[in-house]
Design a protein around this nucleic acid. Structure first.
Lengths: 242, 242
DNA sequence: GCTCACAATATGTATAGACAATTAATCGCT
DNA sequence: AGCGATTAATTGTCTATACATATTGTGAGC
């Protein structure tokens, strides 16, 4: 705790926040490190516990810290890389909104050698490709429909994963290396299949994010994520607004 | 306020949060609407002000609400579309981290008719294109280098903008309609120019986000955003991790 | 009518204290 | 040694209160 101090700049809780964040981004507190408890920090800074609490909670909300009762507060694993990935972790978005996340596997198959879907991926005809459709729900209401193609050669262990229970996205991010990602965001009316899964009327505008991931020259996975457009109010964006 | 009520599920502040968020996403409170003051909500729910405050603050932090002293709390403009855009508003990222945002224009010019940079944009040779380089700083330290090409025909008013004071990104989002965006994320070593602007050593890994925006068939703008890679700890992502 | 001072309002920050919930460690019993 | 109950540490939530700060509205004085 030596050297951890306020800078007299702005509200106290922000000063404390900065002090802690500085330790994290400055690599003095690496991921996994346990930081001092609220009480210790409270005493150290000479403030009330609620003030310390606010600083720490805000960092925890943003994913820099993880907190557990009786255990303490530790520096999160990927504290620093978050900004770029925030949009992709549906579960986190939902849980941060205070809603209950649930998951459902709809379909799953190994793509036959002559299937058209292979054209989306420049791989040898013999390469096994896993295709699946699943649904992410927020408080039981469909939130995102995910269609995904996975190169089994790039991620062989995925076949051992209980896909009816675990969504593939977070697992892939954690277990399969990749070097490049391509994104494409567009607005598309829902066809029958999507409308059905997301419980919308056919033709409802959806926000579609397509994400292709590569490891060097090897394609890893391709995800197509459908969101009910109304959630995002994209309308103002793709109809003239002036 | 009629009908706004707790659901007995989880902590009270989360219940209040849900109740408010429900009004927002359910379109009962449209963007611009002023929501009841903390005191009113406090009385309505029969809790202490700090509890209401926590619920509202968390929504404000995530951008669903905007708060101003004496004015009150209003529903933010793009409350619903936020998840998809979070990564692009540097200023917000910086200010949410409790750091001071500042901005600097480095270069600006109208691209000559025979310039190679035109190839990035499929437009007629006569179309005026504005090119610029600017820097976004966090607490005075370079945070993001932005290189941008703007189709002046799609955004004529940009020439009136005091670009040495205002960053073009937020202005474009607010004033120019677009229908599609393409993104590409990659990791690239900094060349001399980037290293110089971002105050890095040549060869330091940077996270580069390229974003092309279209309005129907008309290209609107192309942005290339450089981040010092160390900020994001991308390393684990583009070097094999197993 | 204009300007300046002041009041009113809403949020921002901070304190001190209380009890609940979770989980690791410990101690005692068999 | 192993099991179970108890204790302790740590965060989670909540209350009641106080003063600070920003901004609008209002009214007095000119």
């Amino acid at each position: 705790m030596e050297g951890l101090c306020l800078d007299g700049n702005g509200p106290v809780w922000r000063q404390i926040r900065r002090a802690i964040l500085g330790r994290i981004t400055g690599d003095a507190w690496r991921p996994g490190t346990r930081i001092p408890s609220e009480i210790e920090l409270t005493r150290h800074f000479g403030v009330s516990r609620m003030t310390t609490n606010r600083a720490i909670q805000s960092l925890a909300l943003e994913g820099h810290l993880e907190r557990h009762r009786r255990i303490g507060t530790i520096v999160a694993n990927r504290a620093q890389e978050r900004p770029a990935f925030e949009i992709w972790d549906v579960r986190e978005i939902i849980e941060r909104s205070g809603e209950r996340y649930s998951y459902q596997l709809l379909e799953q198959l190994i793509i036959p050698e002559d299937d058209a879907r292979r054209d989306l991926f420049p791989v040898r005809r013999e390469t096994a490709l896993l295709w699946l459709r699943c649904l992410h729900l927020s408080d039981g209401i469909p939130f995102q429909l995910e269609e995904r193609l996975v190169n089994v050669e790039a991620a062989p262990d995925i076949l051992d994963l209980p896909l009816d229970q675990t969504p593939p996205g977070p697992w892939l991010v954690d277990h399969v290396p990749w070097s490049q990602a391509e994104h494409m965001i567009s607005a598309v009316p829902a066809a029958a299949k999507e409308a059905d899964a997301l419980d919308l009327n056919i033709g409802t505008a959806c926000l579609v994010v397509e994400r292709r991931t590569w490891n060097g020259a090897t394609p890893v996975t391709l995800a197509k994520l459908w969101h009910p457009g109304s959630r995002y109010r994209l309308k103002g964006q793709f109809e003239p607004v002036r």
